[in-house]
Amino acid sequence: MIRLRSAFLRHSLLILAALLMLLPVAWALLVSTRAQDAILGAQLLTLPSWSAIAANYTRATSATPLFGFIGNGALVCTLILFFQVLIMVPCGYALAKLRFPGRDALWGAVLLGLMVPAPVLATPLFVMVATAGLMDTVAALVVPWVVSSLGIFLMRQFFRRVPDELIEAARLDGLGEIDLLVRVLLPLARPTLGAFAIISLVAHWNDLYWPSIVVTSAERATPPFGVMLFQTQEAGTEYGALMAGSLIIAMPLMAAFLLLQRRFVEGLVAMK
């Protein structure tokens, strides 16, 4: 009996918390399905109309290049992740398994890099990007982040756990260092790489700070910067459309999360 009551209390609290967590999204959905005069008249709890939904979502996609933002986001995130992996895997392997001059200094730099947050680097990187004449380019969005201290750190920790015997056996089997890395070690590292990919994607897809520094045109805008553009332009006062646009922009990552949520959570926990 007591057990039953405590379970009831527990779930009541949890459901309440869940509703509060979902409230902004729910309200956004509500707003995005109402016509402007219904919104301004605070008549949100009436039946949604198909015409308003159609109008809002069409307006959102026509007023700003919404899918352009999402495309940019996908392009930038893919490029960043690609170069990050390309650079961090060999470096992590060398740090873990090979002795070479400067190794300790490099490892020290990686640890320091872990502690320096992106916004600190943004101030000088902006000057460098501007001097190089790269403002408002894909390169400006990608290049500063192609080397990830976290990624190198994770790969090094991962490779250290791989027993030396495995590597020696592969060498005895006649595999060269690159073959060994690509054919033997990389498949083993898949879970670590997956977790890192999730962290990298979430961080760069959601980043507003850096794009708002180096991007000046809608053609190069990434999703969060696109939201900001949308909000500050004329259509930004058409609340239904603005909300529809914001939801569309938040959608890809949320959908990916819902599909792969266990991996998202595990990945983020494993990394910290």
């Binding site: 409230l23 999204v25 909300m243 914001s246 990552l253």
Partner: peptide, 26 residues
Amino acid sequence: TIFFLPYIATLAAMSIAWQMLLHPSF
């Protein structure tokens, strides 16, 4: 999943949702 969703959701877009929630008139 629900509790973790806000951390994943693009904060810029969600800020707009909060703006609607806190809008002085509606």
